[in-house]
């Protein structure tokens, strides 16, 4: 049970969730559009690669497992990163809307996170619809072990990772206190996450040396590791290691966020009001 001082969070969460479910067309277009574009393109691309190289496995994935990876990739990305290009914090600083939130006796960071959590939770619904659709028409590949427990663990890890991603993105967005337009920084983060987070290609396809470096960063937790967990390709020891690693990264990002936030507030001019 939440303490009374956080009851507003439940209200914000449900209001935000209601908003997402209200826009029915957006729900299906957004969901199917992204899913099909990624999965269908990947299907033909990897089919050619497998045929050309005449192998049964690439980077530890059979062809069917690779296609399943590309089903998990966009839906996991949506849970962790979401649809939006940013959290809106930079725009609120830019146009002065932040002033309204500064007046409320609640944490602005927490308020924005509750909105993000509602978005991620909404994406979990899409996650299960996509997976249900897959299981209805296709067989589970032999080198993949899908289980309800694995899926739930994967979603929980994805939700934890979404918090870390949110903190990192918010930290970057705070640079709007100093620079008017920080859109390019958000694009860079998103591109880095796609590349180093295993959303574009599984990280096992990178050379070992590069993989070793990538696994010290938080990026693999924004895609690759939750997907591996869902596909039954991650041990419990590695899962635990992942959670500890995420926790350490979160502490670093949170510390930096508050440092920059306090500095930035001194620079804030509240233009637009």
């Amino acid at each position: 049970m939440l303490p009374t001082k956080y009851m507003w969070a439940i209200n914000v969460f449900t209001l935000e969730l209601r908003k997402y479910f209200t826009y029915r067309v957006d729900f299906w277009v957004n969901f199917l559009g992204r899913l099909f574009s990624v999965t269908v393109v990947s299907y033909f691309l990897w089919k050619s690669i497998f045929q050309y190289r005449a192998v049964t496995q690439i980077g530890g994935y059979s062809f069917s497992a690779m296609i399943l990876y590309y089903l998990f990739s966009p839906i996991t990305e949506k849970v962790i990163i979401g649809n939006e290009k940013d959290n809106g914090i930079s725009f609120e600083i830019y146009d002065g809307s932040l002033s309204c939130y500064l007046m409320y006796p609640i944490s602005f960071f927490l308020y924005k996170y509750v909105i993000k959590l509602a978005q991620s939770s909404f994406m979990v619904v899409q996650y299960f619809i996509a997976l249900g659709g897959y299981l209805l028409f296709f067989q589970i590949p032999q080198d993949v072990s899908l289980s309800l427990l694995g899926l739930i663990q994967s979603i929980v890890l994805a939700l934890i990772a979404s918090f870390v991603y949110f903190t990192l993105l918010s930290l970057i967005e705070l640079s709007a206190f100093w620079a008017d337009n920080i859109w390019s920084l958000c694009v860079m983060l998103r591109f880095s996450t796609s590349m180093l987070g295993g959303i574009l290609i599984p990280l096992t396809l990178f050379p070992n040396r590069i993989q070793n470096i990538i696994f010290y960063t938080p990026f693999p937790y924004f895609g690759f590791i939750p997907i591996q967990l869902a596909m039954g390709k991650l041990s419990h020891a590695l899962l635990l290691e992942g959670i500890v690693c995420l926790f350490i990264w979160e502490l670093v990002f949170l510390f930096l966020f508050y440092l920059v936030w306090l500095k930035g507030l001194k620079k804030y001019t509240g233009v637009g009001i």
């Binding site: 439940i10 209001l15 809307s97 006796p105």
Partner: peptide
């Protein structure tokens, strides 16, 4: 409280009644 005639502070997409309920929780 700050009331700004030139800037909307309420949640644009919500009915006023929902906004007030949210403020009830925010201000406890």
């Amino acid at each position: 409280a700050l009331i700004m005639g030139q800037k909307a502070q309420l949640w644009w997409d919500l009915p006023a009644a929902d906004c007030f309920l949210l403020l009830k929780e925010i201000y406890r």
